[in-house]
Amino acid sequence: MYDYSSRPSRLPLPVDERMASADIDLGQRKSIYRSLQELRQFEKRAHDLFLQNLVKGTTHLSLGMEAVAAGFGAAMRPDDYTFATYRGHAHALARGMEMGPAMAELLGRSNGVLGGKGGSMHLTDVSRGMMGSYAIIGAHLCIANGAAWSAQMRGSGQVTVCFFGDGTTNIGAFHEALNMAKVWQLPVVFVCENNLYMEYTPIDLITAVPHPAADRAASYGLESVIVDGNDPDAVYLAAGKAIGRAREGGGPALIEATTYRTGGHSRADPAKYRPLEEVEAWAQRDPIPMYHARLLGLGVAEGELSSIERDVAADVDAATEFAKAGEEPTGEALLTEVYADGSSRWRN
């Protein structure tokens, strides 16, 4: 039986140690560290709850990929817009979605952020600029353009950031969205989280170019940008540059962030289609221990970092309790919010 795990590994590049001396405020770095911890600990708990059958259906975790969400979250203005995919927990939390309602949504409870109607794949919190998590590949790049177009027309200075996977670069909507964004000079930043796999298939086997997003940038008059998606500082800097330029009317950007998921695509996928050596090499490039060490090197006390970790652990425990205490939604909710009058009425 043919098995992709016997293919040559695609190994990560070494950490760029120069990032340690990048001009990033230490307070900002500490809050990025907190964000990394939040995303990691929340999702580990979500996975545990999935294995306990408390989270039904499916989850798509960003474990190992948190630096992208955390770095962008730190670089965005509170009123900027985020558009994410079904792999969207990290992006929602990085914009400030409260953990309790987020966890409750995963458990399908009425105290969930979507009242249990959306579930894991559709986390949304408009009050925090988290404009939705979309589960049909490609569509949300086009929708992100619309939010950016609206900000442009309103002159609000808001920037839209749209996250998607490597596999998404092969669907038509990706190409339609980039072309329109460039033609209209929209304030939108497209971020490809290249985790090297489209579900269970290595991306290089199904893509005409080696860098699925960056190699396409020139087709749309955009600069080709590849960033180490496992280095929060590198992501933060690239994000700040692209967002800043978009805010000033410089138009769209496309960033390819190279990363890797620690676990499987979804649910309990053991991800056996990946070479062991590759999995192990990327585990060595886990963004969190690396960032921990970097902060120590910059003079942050171990005690301060471990207190962040403990705070976050307590938050995740509280969120879990909040979620478990939630009621299952009742039939009253079933027929609401199909139309703007709050009803599902289609006849008189």
Binding site: G138, N145, A147, W149, S150, M153, E176, M180
Partner: peptide, 28 residues
């Protein structure tokens, strides 16, 4: 031309733009 726009032949991008704009305060 800011309010009446010609688009590329990109039906998904047209409706995506309409959706994203309308959900952020601009009717389309």
């Amino acid at each position: 031309p800011d309010r009446v726009r010609d688009t590329p032949i990109s039906e998904q991008a047209i409706l995506g733009a309409a959706m994203g704009a309308s959900m952020t305060g601009v009717p389309v």
